[in-house]
Amino acid sequence: MDTRRLRFLLELSRHGSMRAVADVLGTTTSTVSQQMAVLAREAGAPLLEPDGRRVRLTPAGRRLAEHAVTILAAVEAARADLDPHAEPAGTVRVAGFATAVRRSVLPAAARLAVEHPQVELRISEYEPHEAFAALLADDVDLALTYDYDFAPANADPAVTMSPLWTSRWSLAVPAADAAAERGEDTLAVFAAFHDHGWIVNSRNSADEDVVRRLASMAGFTPRVTHRADSLELVEDLIATGPAPAVGLLPADRQTKPGVALLPLAAPEVRQRAFACTRRGREVWPPLALVLGLLVR
């Protein structure tokens, strides 16, 4: 198969219309249509089917598009091997949670703009399970995810996970309720707030899994009263919410007045961040460059 035709197929899987593919690749819609017809004959299976006034990929077309990513990445890697001084170029689609975007992606983007201007980042904010699903669907090239040591994510053999960082988390409580000395025994700290409402993440279950697991070890079932994705909103609910509530926050966070952080050291609660790629695709030079910046 001609790799140029695979590029047409891959772009069609990403953009959904022949006109969009023609715009991206600088050609005409008739050329796109002709190349797709030739590719279907080469593949020995229909790759497109009508979808109203547009077209969509058949199951065979979707499978071939998945292979096209790996094939084209291998071709790029081969070219880079033959010309090690070649400048990486291309668009890398990144999906990740807000903290990872701020902490890792934006500094990397700033370096790319200066040192590798031909590599472009397209950034989407997603919670870990959303980013992971987008990665498996080939909607993004790189997914930034997290889990907790008390609620580890399930490994997927199709994905390579590169560790980024680990951070300690604390229990955030109303400042007025934080005066009593409890030490850093995590279960004792949890037990002391068993009658408070508990705040968990509204879009990701890992935080709730940690809360419920530690509460169970401390001998109670937490009463979840609020669900919030924003850490700022978690603070607001603790400081000025309708009833006393507590929740997990990063241990190094500078909280607003009215919120106190209680250490959790025995056992610690650690959040672990990862950069995830489809296995084998990390050799594509633009993606390898971005991944290297993030991991470093």
Rank of each mutant, 00 (worst) to 15 (best):
D209N: 14
D209L: 15
V210P: 04
V210N: 07
V210T: 07
V210R: 01
V211T: 08
V211I: 13
V211K: 00
V211H: 09
V211Y: 09
V211C: 07
R212K: 05
R213Q: 05
L214M: 10
L214Y: 05
A215L: 07
A215I: 06
S216I: 00
S216P: 05
M217C: 11
M217A: 15
M217F: 12
G219F: 00
G219V: 03
G219R: 00
F220Y: 15
F220N: 02
F220H: 09
T221P: 08
T221V: 13
P222I: 04
P222E: 10
R223P: 04
R223V: 07
V224G: 06
V224W: 01
V224I: 15
T225S: 11
T225L: 09
T225Q: 03
T225N: 04
R227Q: 12
R227F: 06
R227M: 09
A228K: 01
D229Y: 10
D229M: 11
D229E: 14
S230M: 08
S230H: 15
S230L: 10
S230K: 13
S230C: 08
E232Y: 03
L233G: 07
L233I: 12
E235W: 05
L237H: 01
L237K: 03
L237S: 01
I238L: 03
I238S: 01
I238D: 01
I238M: 04
I238Y: 07
I238T: 02
A239R: 02
A239Q: 02
A239W: 00
T240M: 09
G241K: 09
G241M: 05
G241V: 01
P242Y: 06
A243G: 11
P244V: 03
P244A: 08
A245Q: 07
A245V: 04
V246A: 13
V246F: 04
V246W: 01
L248K: 00
L248D: 06
L248T: 00
L249K: 01
L249Y: 09
L249F: 10
P250F: 14
A251F: 06
A251D: 15
A251N: 11
D252S: 11
D252V: 11
R253Q: 13
R253S: 09
R253D: 08
R253L: 15
R253I: 12
Q254D: 15
Q254K: 14
Q254H: 14
Q254S: 15
Q254G: 15
Q254F: 10
Q254I: 11
Q254M: 11
T255L: 00
T255K: 05
K256P: 01
K256T: 13
G258P: 00
V259S: 00
V259K: 00
V259H: 02
A260M: 03
A260F: 03
L261H: 06
L261A: 07
L262G: 02
L264E: 12
L264C: 07
L264Q: 05
A265T: 12
A265K: 10
A266Q: 15
A266C: 13
A266W: 15
P267R: 12
P267Y: 08
P267Q: 06
P267F: 08
E268R: 13
V269Y: 14
V269M: 11
V269A: 08
R270H: 13
R270Y: 09
R270L: 14
R270F: 09
Q271F: 07
Q271V: 14
R272Q: 13
A273L: 10
